[in-house]
Design a protein around this nucleic acid. Structure first.
Length: 541
RNA sequence: GCGGGUGUAGCUCAGUGGUAGAGCGCCACGUUGCCAACGUGGCUGUCGUGGGUUCGAGCCCCAUCACCCGCUCCA
């Protein structure tokens, strides 16, 4: 599939426009047009319906409890300190200025081997090495120093590696750092790359009122964990869901809408007992992959991939990326991350806020109490004493911080995947056509109502049907040009059904219903059209 | 952030310094009898943006923006 053709279609038919296009656009931001907003809304509605309102049954057949929230984009900046984003999202970077090299490194991954002892006169020169840790750098240091010994004569036994970030206040008097790649003295000083968008709450800009646009929706859920618990009578396990915009200052937005700086997430934080967390992690990983398949993503294009330990996020003890083979890449790209976050977030917020976010297991505690007090049921005084004792000694064991499984899906990324997956070219009666094979649930327009010709009462009949159907769905009325052309127009925007009102309709109130993918037509009573559409839109499970 | 490429009508593209074009699409009227029909008429452009050279710039020069490819980055 040719990405350019899809991009052209999306623009031509009003799925996706470049943001602020008349001003030359803006890198990393996109707008959804009339059809795009329908498609994306359908995707979000399908997700909310299938995951929140009517989630699948749990691993042992029980109902799953799910509720939603809709949190502010801007939160107290301390949220991002607790979550680790304030520190981890501002990686200092260094670049090499030499023509033909121009490598860019994370500053904390570059270490300097001080060559001063190996250099005549002790001139301050150090060479950079790339390593993941200071220990790793140290093992490389001697080799590097030996290599340089040839050039700089004397002895290299005392080579030391130190983090590049310490170069500014180094006592060694190092005047330059050689690029690990081209070994020229042209590394820039470390510069901050802050990946969070900043703003100010209040009209006066100052350091005190600096705020951040959220880089993920998850933290709104965590900070409201206690509120939800206290207002709903939910018991573990349960999930809290949120759909909303997030913002990341991506260094280099690329690949159409795939890596945008403003994007929408569909996230669940599923809270469970620590000893059941692996089970729920595997459950959600499988549920989420199945969901994509149900909505028409071919399984050959879907790749669940367990992340290796080295690429895990700072909070995660296990993550599966559900990836999709986009046409713009040879490698599958992430649609969703299903992460086992352990108790990282709730603990972090407990620590920084000083608020108790532990869950108290009432059921377990009551069962335990009942069992322990059973022998004293006829001795009220003894019973009270025992209860006090147990309260003091045993009760705290029933309070714990839940573990969390987080299926975090990209609404825009899935929208893009749906567009890629749907795009097809085939031939009908020897003529080429372009057809978007959307799942009916996701199709922006569910049906087109077409009078075969504009006379003999056909438009009136067609209008009546149109008015009936549009009460429930986005349907489209088209009386322009030959019917074949109208069919093709609907194919191109992925409308699953075309309903044609013809001469026979006037006789017996039947219409033809044309199926998009096969182009086959059936004749059905006009009164059953709504049922036909409804049937196609029912989630299959 | 670096290097390379691209930018002309809604789309695909032609236009090598001298009056901005074609096909498709779109709109109107007529026609219409199930898969991009036909006839007639019509709309469509700050030639990505800003500056410069020139009597004159879509075309040459500089800058800038956006998109594509590669590098880099992506908790």
């Amino acid at each position: 599939m040719d990405m350019d053709k899809l991009v052209a279609l999306c623009r031509r038919r009003g799925f996706i426009f470049q943001s602020s296009e008349i001003y030359g656009g803006i890198n990393g931001f996109w707008d959804y047009g009339p059809l795009g907003v329908e498609l994306k809304n359908n995707i979000k509605a399908a997700w909310w319906n299938d995951m929140v309102r009517n989630p699948p049954l749990g691993p042992d057949g029980q109902e799953i409890e799910m509720v939603g929230v809709d949190c502010a984009l801007i939160m107290n900046p301390k949220v991002w300190v607790a979550s680790g984003h304030a520190a981890g999202f501002a990686d200092p970077m260094v670049a090499c200025k030499t023509e033909g090299c121009k490598k860019l490194y994370r500053a904390d991954k570059v270490f300097l081997v001080d060559l001063s002892p190996a250099t005549p006169g002790g001139a301050g020169v150090a060479v950079g090495v790339e390593a993941n840790s200071e220990a790793e750098a140290q093992t490389l240091a001697l080799d590097v120093a030996k290599k340089f010994k040839k050039k700089h004569a004397s002895d290299a036994t005392s080579a030391l590696a130190m983090p590049l970030t310490s170069i500014a206040n180094s006592a060694a008097g190092i005047q330059g750092a050689l690029c690990p790649n081209c070994q020229k003295n042209s590394l820039t000083p470390p510069r901050a790359f802050n990946l969070m968008f900043e703003s100010h709450a209040g009209a006066i800009q100052s350091e005190e009122n600096k705020v951040f646009l959220r880089p993920e929706t998850a933290q709104g859920i965590f900070v409201n964990f206690k509120n939800v618990l206290d207002s709903t009578r939910l018991k573990l396990p349960f999930g809290i869901a949120q759909v909303g915009k997030s913002f990341r200052n991506e260094i280099n937005p690329r690949n159409y809408t795939f890596r945008s700086r403003e994007f929408e997430q569909m996230e669940i934080e599923f809270f469970c007992r620590p000893n059941e967390s692996r089970m729920w992690y595997e459950f959600w990983r499988d549920v989420r992959k199945k969901w994509y398949s149900e909505l028409g993503i071919k399984s050959s294009n879907l790749r669940p991939r367990e992340q290796g330990p080295e690429e895990l996020a700072h909070y995660s003890v296990g993550t599966t990326d559900i990836e999709y083979m986009f046409p713009f890449s040879d490698e599958p790209q992430e649609l969703e991350g299903v992460a086992h976050r352990g108790d990282f977030d709730l603990n972090a917020h407990m620590k920084l806020s000083g608020k108790d976010l532990a869950y108290f297991d009432e059921e377990g505690w009551n069962a335990f109490l009942q069992e322990k007090l059973e022998p004293y049921k006829d001795d009220k005084k003894r019973r009270e004493e025992e209860k006090k004792k147990l309260d003091k000694e045993e009760r705290p064991k029933y309070a714990f911080v839940p573990h969390v499984v987080e299926p975090s899906a990209g609404a825009d990324r899935f929208t893009l995947a749906v567009l890629c997956e749907a795009y097809a070219e085939d031939t009908v009666g020897g003529e080429a056509r372009t057809v978007m094979r959307f799942h009916p649930r996701l199709a922006p327009v569910k049906a087109a109502i077409l009078p075969l010709v504009n006379k003999e009462g056909m438009p009136e009949k067609a209008h009546a049907l149109y008015r009936e159907l549009k009460q429930d769905w986005n349907v489209f009325y088209d009386d322009g040009g030959a019917v074949g052309r109208r069919y093709r127009r609907q194919d191109e925007i992925g409308t699953p059904y075309c309903i044609t009102i013809d001469g026979q309709t006037l006789q017996d109130n039947t219409v033809t219903i044309r199926e998009r993918d096969s182009t086959e037509q059936r004749r059905i009573p006009m009164a059953t059209v709504a049922d036909e559409i409804r049937k196609a839109l029912k989630p299959q499970r």
